[in-house]
Simulated scan of single mutants.
Amino acid sequence: MFLFRRRGVDSTRLRALRSLYLIFIEQNGPEARARRLLRDWLSPEQRAQFDAKNYFEVTGSHTGKRYRVHYGTVSNVVEVDASGQPATGWCFVPERALAVGDVMLAQKIALETDEAAVLALAHRCSPRQPSLPRVVRRAY
């Protein structure tokens, strides 16, 4: 980070500088940049939905079916029936590891441009979104 001599440097200044540096990294790191890029590609309706519910809906290019792309990278695409209920889960990701926003953007573009090819490669999975892992506490 920065090199300072211990003498003559106020510790509160160091803490303030460190917190400023951490905020900068948090706002300009790969995850934040990927999320900003995703938001730039979303329509105003999708962006509002993503901000409110942490997912957005996409219409498939060939069948016109609706898909919900949840925040995440694996098993995060759900086909939605006419009543808005999850029908089928789909799992497809890019070949390389990417930030969450980049994966979601790739899934959005793939479904909107070549739905048939994507579903031919995708794996079916449970339409239920995985919950957060439970914390197991052990008695020692």
Rank of each mutant, 00 (worst) to 15 (best):
S19P: 02
Q49R: 07
V58I: 10
L105Y: 06
A99S: 12
Y71H: 10
T73P: 01
R96K: 14
N76P: 01
S61F: 04
A116L: 11
G60E: 01
V80N: 05
Q49L: 08
R36Y: 06
P86N: 10
L42C: 07
V74S: 12
G60D: 01
R36Q: 14
D51P: 01
A48W: 02
A48Q: 09
V69T: 05
A82L: 12
A116S: 14
A32C: 05
W90D: 00
V103M: 08
V93K: 08
V78L: 04
L105E: 03
A110M: 03
I23K: 15
R66Y: 11
G89C: 05
G72I: 04
A99N: 08
A110T: 07
V80W: 03
H62I: 02
H62P: 00
H62L: 04
R36H: 07
A87I: 01
P44K: 06
E115C: 09
R18H: 14
P86W: 05
I23A: 14
L37T: 10
H70F: 10
R36K: 13
H70V: 05
Y71G: 00
A97G: 10
A110P: 03
L22K: 09
A48K: 09
L20C: 09
D114E: 12
A106L: 13
Y67H: 06
L38E: 01
I25K: 15
E31G: 06
H70D: 09
Q85H: 11
R36T: 07
E79L: 07
P30V: 15
Q107P: 12
P30H: 12
G89A: 06
R18M: 11
P94G: 04
Y55P: 00
T88C: 06
Q27H: 10
E115W: 03
F92E: 09
R39M: 12
A97D: 15
C91D: 15
V58N: 01
Y55E: 02
G64I: 06
A16R: 11
M104Y: 12
A16P: 01
V80T: 11
A116M: 10
M104F: 10
V69H: 00
D114V: 11
H70E: 07
R18Q: 15
V80H: 06
D102W: 00
N54A: 13
K108P: 09
S83L: 12
E57D: 15
F50G: 00
D40T: 09
A87W: 03
Y67I: 06
L42W: 08
G64Q: 08
Q85L: 13
A48F: 01
E115L: 05
P86I: 02
A106R: 13
L105G: 03
G101V: 02
V100H: 08
R35L: 08
R33E: 06
G84W: 01
E79M: 06
Y67K: 05
P30W: 09
